[in-house]
């Protein structure tokens, strides 16, 4: 991507969802938010693959919650965007706004 952002579309989508969900961002809520927004089914495994990549790159952090019976005794993993992640999202937004500007086809 132009303008100094190294985010792909999926990475950017997930980071935006993390910003929207705040403290409630974990696999289920993230996937639901993406499904509602894009109107397409989402594989939870691919969400986690992207989240792990974002954590490795320092754009997000994760933290384990408490296990529950509903989850078969397994804990949730919550994710939060980092300051570095927010800067990347801003850079991506600037790039996209420049690219979208004044395109007659988009009205």
């Amino acid at each position: 991507m132009a303008g100094g952002s190294s985010l792909g579309t999926t990475d950017l989508t997930i980071l935006l969802v993390l910003m929207r969900l705040g403290d409630e961002a974990y696999g289920v809520t993230i996937a639901r938010e993406i499904e509602e927004t894009t109107r397409r089914p989402v594989a939870l495994a691919s969400v986690y693959a992207t989240l792990d990549r974002l954590v490795e790159r320092g754009f997000a952090v994760s933290e384990l919650g408490e296990p529950t019976a509903e989850r078969g005794g397994r804990a949730k993993k919550y994710f939060r965007i980092t300051g570095r992640g927010v800067r990347e999202v801003r850079a991506a937004k600037q790039s996209l706004v420049k690219l979208w500007k004044d395109l007659p086809q988009l009205g």
């Binding site: 939870l44 078969g72 397994r74 804990a75």
Partner: peptide
């Protein structure tokens, strides 16, 4: 896969 399986279980409920 435990976290993923937990999410799937939650949605299944």
């Amino acid at each position: 896969h435990d976290v993923l399986l937990g999410d799937l279980s939650e949605e299944y409920q």
